[in-house]
Write a protein that binds this DNA or RNA. Structure first.
Lengths: 144, 144
DNA sequence: AATATTCTGCAACTTTGTTGCAAAAACTTT
DNA sequence: AAAGTTTTTGCAACAAAGTTGCAGAATATT
């Protein structure tokens, strides 16, 4: 059924490793994330699966992936909900998501710059930081 | 009608300066922003205006303020839509919004830290930054 | 004060996200 | 590999969030 088998064993492993039943929808949606070099919106997923799955299934799949720490959300300026694959060290409930996100104004893709560490910032007195998120927009390397 | 007249002339000036008719809803909503030291969600505004105005009016007022560069949106991790006053040098279409936003995990307020400049970040080759947004979450100075 | 323009509120609608439940698929056990 | 158990799916119905058209009301203009 799958048109691209390159990720098949990896997909299986990820799902089983997270104690999720291996189903068509989960395989397909996880495959989309592995193929995508950037983040996906809920709408993207519905489009790319070709209306094969129910809206509710997509919601629940994303929810399940979130809970297991397979994906995380990215805040955007226009308040669209974006999801992207977490790195391996993301575990249930605790996400290590302190990398920079880049939004391309040309192709519209949102990319996780895993290798770019969020710089330190000095806050006014009394402010105690716990988490920092940084979103850079501009032109990505592909569109450049 | 207004319970707090301290901002009255400022409110008038801002609206007229942006070629917006001075109406009750716009005055009241702008007053809320001037009073608030942080950002407001659509829901906050509906609550604080005491159901005086129609939902649609609130939407359209925020939209008008956005278009004129009076307020801007802030991205949040949980994808709630937040609005905050722009600085004076925000003009129609072009927002100079490069300051840090702080979200307090205790009181839930989102505060614009106008004085904190977003630090430089080094991107991989080919990535050309245009705008940077930074959201720090933690405990704010009031809750500390 | 009269006219022209803009804004508001209502109603109806679209879009987005959620919940309960029976049927279907996946996993387990033997 | 067939039976039973658990999980997941899709449907329907619902709830929340946001949009649009339009008549009446408020604001601005003369």
């Amino acid at each position: 059924m799958s048109t691209n088998r390159s990720h098949d064993s990896e997909i299986d492993h990820i799902l089983k490793h997270n104690q999720l039943s291996v189903t068509d929808s989960r395989k397909k949606i996880l495959e989309l994330f592995l193929q995508a070099n950037g983040a996906l919106a809920h709408g993207d997923i519905e489009k790319k699966t070709g209306e094969k799955f129910d809206r509710v299934t997509v919601y629940r799949t994303l929810q399940a992936f979130m809970e297991k720490g397979i994906i995380h959300t990215i805040p955007t300026a226009d308040n669209a909900v974006l999801y992207a694959l977490c790195k391996d060290d993301c575990t249930e409930g605790h996400h290590h998501d302190n990398h920079v996100h880049f939004v391309c104004n040309h192709c519209g893709n949102t990319i996780c710059l895993e290798e770019v560490v969020v710089p330190e910032v000095k806050l006014p007195k009394g402010f105690q930081p716990a988490e920092v998120q940084m979103i850079v927009s501009g032109i990505c390397s592909e569109c450049h």
